[in-house]
Protein backbone atom coordinates (compact mmCIF):
# COMPACT_ATOMS: atom_id res chain seq x y z
CA UNK A 1 0.00 0.00 0.00
CA UNK A 2 2.64 2.45 1.15
CA UNK A 3 4.93 1.42 -1.66
CA UNK A 4 2.12 1.96 -4.15
CA UNK A 5 1.61 5.52 -2.91
CA UNK A 6 5.35 6.01 -3.10
CA UNK A 7 5.49 4.75 -6.68
CA UNK A 8 2.63 7.03 -7.67
CA UNK A 9 4.23 10.06 -6.05
CA UNK A 10 7.79 9.45 -7.27
CA UNK A 11 6.79 8.58 -10.84
CA UNK A 12 4.15 11.30 -10.83
CA UNK A 13 6.67 13.95 -9.86
CA UNK A 14 9.17 12.64 -12.41
CA UNK A 15 6.65 12.57 -15.28
CA UNK A 16 5.35 15.89 -14.02
CA UNK A 17 8.78 17.45 -14.24
CA UNK A 18 8.68 16.70 -17.98
CA UNK A 19 5.41 18.62 -18.15
CA UNK A 20 7.00 21.39 -16.08
CA UNK A 21 9.87 21.67 -18.57
CA UNK A 22 7.42 21.95 -21.45
CA UNK A 23 5.60 24.62 -19.45
CA UNK A 24 8.84 26.53 -18.78
CA UNK A 25 9.75 26.36 -22.45
CA UNK A 26 6.27 27.77 -23.18
CA UNK A 27 6.83 30.60 -20.73
CA UNK A 28 9.95 32.11 -22.25
CA UNK A 29 8.47 32.23 -25.75
CA UNK A 30 5.12 33.41 -24.47
CA UNK A 31 6.75 36.20 -22.52
CA UNK A 32 8.73 37.41 -25.51
CA UNK A 33 6.10 36.99 -28.22
CA UNK A 34 2.68 36.14 -26.78
CA UNK A 35 2.89 32.85 -28.67
CA UNK A 36 2.26 29.41 -27.18
CA UNK A 37 3.92 26.86 -29.41
CA UNK A 38 1.55 23.96 -30.08
CA UNK A 39 4.46 22.05 -31.62
CA UNK A 40 6.45 21.98 -28.39
CA UNK A 41 5.45 18.38 -27.62
CA UNK A 42 6.81 17.19 -30.97
CA UNK A 43 10.02 19.08 -30.25
CA UNK A 44 10.35 17.08 -27.03
CA UNK A 45 9.93 13.90 -29.06
CA UNK A 46 12.55 15.15 -31.56
CA UNK A 47 14.92 15.64 -28.62
CA UNK A 48 14.26 12.03 -27.62
CA UNK A 49 15.00 11.05 -31.23
CA UNK A 50 18.39 12.65 -30.74
CA UNK A 51 19.01 10.27 -27.86
CA UNK A 52 17.94 7.30 -29.99
CA UNK A 53 20.06 8.09 -33.03
CA UNK A 54 23.08 9.71 -31.45
CA UNK A 55 23.53 8.09 -28.07
CA UNK A 56 21.40 4.97 -27.65
CA UNK A 57 23.15 2.88 -24.98
CA UNK A 58 26.29 4.98 -25.38
CA UNK A 59 28.84 5.52 -22.65
CA UNK A 60 28.86 8.76 -20.70
CA UNK A 61 31.78 10.13 -22.74
CA UNK A 62 29.70 10.12 -25.92
CA UNK A 63 26.32 10.62 -24.28
CA UNK A 64 27.21 13.93 -22.65
CA UNK A 65 28.43 15.77 -25.78
CA UNK A 66 25.49 14.34 -27.73
CA UNK A 67 23.16 15.91 -25.16
CA UNK A 68 24.61 19.28 -26.09
CA UNK A 69 24.49 18.53 -29.81
CA UNK A 70 20.81 17.56 -29.59
CA UNK A 71 20.01 20.67 -27.56
CA UNK A 72 21.67 22.90 -30.14
CA UNK A 73 19.94 21.16 -33.06
CA UNK A 74 16.49 21.52 -31.51
CA UNK A 75 17.31 25.12 -30.61
CA UNK A 76 18.07 25.75 -34.30
CA UNK A 77 14.87 23.98 -35.38
CA UNK A 78 12.82 26.12 -33.00
CA UNK A 79 14.54 29.33 -34.00
CA UNK A 80 13.63 28.49 -37.60
CA UNK A 81 10.05 27.71 -36.61
CA UNK A 82 9.93 30.96 -34.65
CA UNK A 83 11.19 32.87 -37.67
CA UNK A 84 8.46 31.30 -39.83
CA UNK A 85 5.79 31.96 -37.22
CA UNK A 86 6.74 35.59 -36.79
CA UNK A 87 6.71 36.48 -40.50
CA UNK A 88 2.94 36.85 -40.90
CA UNK A 89 2.72 38.73 -37.59
CA UNK A 90 4.91 41.53 -38.91
CA UNK A 91 2.21 43.14 -41.01
CA UNK A 92 -1.05 41.29 -40.70
CA UNK A 93 -3.96 42.57 -38.69
CA UNK A 94 -4.74 39.06 -37.55
CA UNK A 95 -2.20 38.59 -34.79
CA UNK A 96 -3.39 35.11 -33.92
CA UNK A 97 -2.21 33.34 -37.08
CA UNK A 98 0.42 31.72 -34.86
CA UNK A 99 -2.21 29.37 -33.44
CA UNK A 100 -2.76 27.99 -36.93
CA UNK A 101 0.88 27.92 -37.97
CA UNK A 102 2.18 26.24 -34.80
CA UNK A 103 -0.58 23.62 -34.98
CA UNK A 104 0.31 23.07 -38.64
CA UNK A 105 4.00 22.63 -37.73
CA UNK A 106 2.98 20.18 -35.00
CA UNK A 107 0.99 18.17 -37.54
CA UNK A 108 3.85 18.27 -40.05
CA UNK A 109 6.47 17.07 -37.53
CA UNK A 110 4.12 14.34 -36.30
CA UNK A 111 3.41 13.26 -39.88
CA UNK A 112 7.12 13.15 -40.76
CA UNK A 113 7.86 11.00 -37.73
CA UNK A 114 4.97 8.73 -38.68
CA UNK A 115 6.17 8.36 -42.27
CA UNK A 116 9.72 7.66 -41.17
CA UNK A 117 9.02 5.41 -38.26
CA UNK A 118 5.48 4.08 -38.51
CA UNK A 119 3.20 3.98 -35.50
CA UNK A 120 5.72 2.22 -33.26
CA UNK A 121 7.68 3.70 -30.40
CA UNK A 122 11.48 3.49 -30.12
CA UNK A 123 13.12 2.15 -26.99
CA UNK A 124 16.01 4.24 -25.78
CA UNK A 125 18.58 3.15 -23.25
CA UNK A 126 20.24 5.89 -21.25
CA UNK A 127 23.36 5.78 -19.10
CA UNK A 128 21.67 6.55 -15.76
CA UNK A 129 21.25 3.39 -13.66
CA UNK A 130 18.20 2.44 -11.64
CA UNK A 131 18.17 3.85 -8.14
CA UNK A 132 16.11 3.26 -5.01
CA UNK A 133 13.82 5.76 -3.35
CA UNK A 134 12.80 4.37 0.07
CA UNK A 135 13.15 0.91 -1.36
CA UNK A 136 11.29 1.54 -4.63
CA UNK A 137 13.30 0.75 -7.77
CA UNK A 138 13.14 3.81 -10.02
CA UNK A 139 14.54 4.29 -13.53
CA UNK A 140 17.50 6.65 -13.60
CA UNK A 141 15.87 8.84 -16.25
CA UNK A 142 13.23 9.83 -13.70
CA UNK A 143 15.98 11.26 -11.54
CA UNK A 144 17.40 13.03 -14.60
CA UNK A 145 13.98 14.50 -15.38
CA UNK A 146 13.63 16.03 -11.93
CA UNK A 147 17.23 17.22 -12.00
CA UNK A 148 16.75 18.73 -15.46
CA UNK A 149 13.64 20.60 -14.32
CA UNK A 150 15.48 22.08 -11.33
CA UNK A 151 18.52 22.91 -13.45
CA UNK A 152 16.44 24.80 -16.02
CA UNK A 153 14.42 26.54 -13.33
CA UNK A 154 17.53 27.99 -11.70
CA UNK A 155 19.25 28.60 -15.02
CA UNK A 156 16.27 30.61 -16.28
CA UNK A 157 16.09 32.51 -13.02
CA UNK A 158 19.72 33.48 -13.35
CA UNK A 159 19.35 34.22 -17.06
CA UNK A 160 16.36 36.49 -16.74
CA UNK A 161 17.72 38.41 -13.76
CA UNK A 162 21.44 38.65 -14.28
CA UNK A 163 22.13 38.69 -18.02
CA UNK A 164 21.48 41.54 -20.40
CA UNK A 165 19.61 39.39 -22.94
CA UNK A 166 17.51 37.84 -20.19
CA UNK A 167 16.59 41.24 -18.81
CA UNK A 168 15.76 42.48 -22.30
CA UNK A 169 13.45 39.50 -22.89
CA UNK A 170 11.77 40.17 -19.54
CA UNK A 171 11.28 43.75 -20.67
CA UNK A 172 9.49 42.44 -23.78
CA UNK A 173 7.07 40.51 -21.63
CA UNK A 174 6.35 43.62 -19.55
CA UNK A 175 5.68 46.07 -22.33
CA UNK A 176 6.21 45.33 -25.95
CA UNK A 177 5.98 48.79 -27.44
CA UNK A 178 8.07 50.36 -24.71
CA UNK A 179 10.80 47.77 -25.32
CA UNK A 180 10.75 48.54 -29.02
CA UNK A 181 10.78 52.26 -28.34
CA UNK A 182 13.76 51.79 -26.02
CA UNK A 183 15.65 50.47 -29.02
CA UNK A 184 15.72 46.78 -28.15
CA UNK A 185 16.08 44.53 -31.20
CA UNK A 186 12.68 42.94 -30.66
CA UNK A 187 12.74 40.37 -33.49
CA UNK A 188 16.20 39.12 -32.59
CA UNK A 189 15.28 38.79 -28.93
CA UNK A 190 12.18 36.87 -29.86
CA UNK A 191 14.20 34.45 -31.98
CA UNK A 192 16.65 34.03 -29.09
CA UNK A 193 13.68 33.21 -26.85
CA UNK A 194 12.58 30.56 -29.34
CA UNK A 195 16.10 29.14 -29.46
CA UNK A 196 16.38 28.98 -25.67
CA UNK A 197 13.03 27.28 -25.49
CA UNK A 198 14.40 24.77 -28.03
CA UNK A 199 17.54 24.24 -26.00
CA UNK A 200 15.40 23.51 -22.94
CA UNK A 201 13.00 21.16 -24.63
CA UNK A 202 15.69 19.45 -26.72
CA UNK A 203 17.86 18.60 -23.72
CA UNK A 204 14.79 17.58 -21.74
CA UNK A 205 13.66 15.22 -24.51
CA UNK A 206 17.16 13.76 -24.75
CA UNK A 207 17.37 13.11 -21.01
CA UNK A 208 13.93 11.58 -20.57
CA UNK A 209 13.97 9.54 -23.79
CA UNK A 210 14.19 6.20 -21.89
CA UNK A 211 10.93 6.83 -20.06
CA UNK A 212 8.74 8.55 -22.63
CA UNK A 213 6.98 7.19 -25.67
CA UNK A 214 9.19 8.16 -28.63
CA UNK A 215 6.47 7.99 -31.28
CA UNK A 216 4.49 10.10 -33.73
CA UNK A 217 1.35 10.58 -31.69
CA UNK A 218 3.06 11.24 -28.35
CA UNK A 219 3.88 14.87 -29.09
CA UNK A 220 0.33 16.16 -28.91
CA UNK A 221 -0.28 14.41 -25.60
CA UNK A 222 2.86 15.88 -24.06
CA UNK A 223 2.15 19.39 -25.24
CA UNK A 224 -1.33 19.24 -23.78
CA UNK A 225 -0.12 18.02 -20.41
CA UNK A 226 2.57 20.69 -20.50
CA UNK A 227 -0.09 23.28 -21.18
CA UNK A 228 -2.18 22.03 -18.27
CA UNK A 229 0.91 22.33 -16.05
CA UNK A 230 1.46 25.89 -17.29
CA UNK A 231 -2.17 26.86 -16.65
CA UNK A 232 -2.21 25.30 -13.19
CA UNK A 233 0.93 27.20 -12.24
CA UNK A 234 -0.17 30.36 -14.02
CA UNK A 235 1.10 31.10 -17.53
CA UNK A 236 4.33 33.07 -17.32
CA UNK A 237 5.32 31.83 -13.86
CA UNK A 238 8.23 29.39 -13.81
CA UNK A 239 7.77 28.94 -10.08
CA UNK A 240 4.20 27.90 -10.83
CA UNK A 241 5.37 25.20 -13.22
CA UNK A 242 7.38 23.58 -10.40
CA UNK A 243 4.06 23.02 -8.64
CA UNK A 244 1.82 22.61 -11.69
CA UNK A 245 3.96 20.04 -13.49
CA UNK A 246 4.35 17.56 -10.61
CA UNK A 247 0.69 18.06 -9.68
CA UNK A 248 -0.48 17.11 -13.16
CA UNK A 249 2.02 14.23 -13.17
CA UNK A 250 0.76 12.82 -9.88
CA UNK A 251 -2.87 13.12 -11.03
CA UNK A 252 -1.96 11.25 -14.24
CA UNK A 253 -0.16 8.49 -12.32
CA UNK A 254 -2.97 8.23 -9.80
CA UNK A 255 -5.46 7.83 -12.64
CA UNK A 256 -3.27 5.27 -14.35
CA UNK A 257 -2.98 3.14 -11.21
CA UNK A 258 -6.50 3.49 -9.85
CA UNK A 259 -8.68 3.71 -12.96
CA UNK A 260 -6.62 2.78 -15.99
CA UNK A 261 -3.90 4.14 -18.23
CA UNK A 262 -6.41 4.98 -20.96
CA UNK A 263 -7.94 7.65 -18.74
CA UNK A 264 -4.77 9.66 -18.04
CA UNK A 265 -5.44 12.26 -20.72
CA UNK A 266 -9.07 12.54 -19.63
CA UNK A 267 -7.88 13.31 -16.08
CA UNK A 268 -5.59 16.07 -17.39
CA UNK A 269 -8.44 17.50 -19.46
CA UNK A 270 -10.68 17.60 -16.38
CA UNK A 271 -7.94 19.32 -14.36
CA UNK A 272 -7.59 21.86 -17.16
CA UNK A 273 -11.32 22.60 -17.41
CA UNK A 274 -11.57 22.74 -13.62
CA UNK A 275 -8.78 25.24 -13.18
CA UNK A 276 -10.01 27.39 -16.07
CA UNK A 277 -13.46 27.56 -14.52
CA UNK A 278 -12.32 28.22 -10.95
CA UNK A 279 -9.05 30.10 -11.21
CA UNK A 280 -8.22 30.98 -14.82
CA UNK A 281 -5.08 32.91 -13.89
CA UNK A 282 -3.60 29.80 -12.23
CA UNK A 283 -1.98 29.47 -8.84
CA UNK A 284 0.77 32.03 -9.39
CA UNK A 285 -0.69 34.07 -12.24
CA UNK A 286 -0.90 37.84 -12.20
CA UNK A 287 -3.79 39.99 -13.32
CA UNK A 288 -2.81 42.71 -15.72
CA UNK A 289 -3.33 46.39 -15.04
CA UNK A 290 -4.43 48.02 -18.25
CA UNK A 291 -6.48 46.58 -21.03
CA UNK A 292 -7.98 49.59 -22.81
Amino acid sequence: MLSEILIIVVRGIAIGSIFAMIAMSFNIVHGATGILNFAQGNMLVLGAFGAFFLANGAALGIWLPMLLVTGVIIAAVLAFQGWLTLIPLRSSVQQDSWIISTVAVSVIVGALIMIYQGPFAYNVKGPAPYFRVLGVRTPGAYGLAIGCMLFWFFAMRFFSRKTFIGLAISALSQDFDAARAAGLPVRRLQLIAFAISGLMIGTAGFLVAPVISVSADAGLRYVLNGFVAAVVGGIGSNLGTLIGGPLVGVVAMLTAYKIGGAYQDLASLLVLVGILMLRPQGLFGRTSARRV
Binding site: L36, F38, D96, I99, V103, L220, R221, L224, F227, V228, V231, G260, A262, Y263, D265, L266, S268, L269, L272, V273, L276, M277, P280
Partner: peptide
Protein backbone atom coordinates in the same frame (compact mmCIF):
# COMPACT_ATOMS: atom_id res chain seq x y z
CA UNK B 1 -14.79 27.16 -20.09
CA UNK B 2 -15.57 29.70 -22.83
CA UNK B 3 -17.65 31.64 -20.32
CA UNK B 4 -14.50 32.31 -18.32
CA UNK B 5 -11.55 32.22 -20.68
CA UNK B 6 -10.86 32.65 -24.36
CA UNK B 7 -8.12 32.79 -26.93
CA UNK B 8 -5.59 29.93 -26.90
CA UNK B 9 -7.00 28.29 -23.76
CA UNK B 10 -9.97 26.95 -25.67
CA UNK B 11 -7.69 25.74 -28.44
CA UNK B 12 -5.99 23.50 -25.91
CA UNK B 13 -9.24 22.40 -24.25
CA UNK B 14 -10.78 21.37 -27.57
CA UNK B 15 -7.56 19.75 -28.78
CA UNK B 16 -7.43 17.71 -25.55
CA UNK B 17 -10.99 16.63 -26.15
CA UNK B 18 -10.09 15.54 -29.69
CA UNK B 19 -7.28 13.38 -28.28
CA UNK B 20 -9.31 11.98 -25.39
CA UNK B 21 -12.44 11.13 -27.42
CA UNK B 22 -11.12 8.12 -29.38
CA UNK B 23 -9.36 6.88 -26.23
CA UNK B 24 -12.70 6.88 -24.43
CA UNK B 25 -14.44 5.14 -27.34
CA UNK B 26 -11.84 2.38 -27.02
CA UNK B 27 -11.88 1.99 -23.27
Amino acid sequence: PALRVQYFHLGFVTLSAAIVFPQLLMS
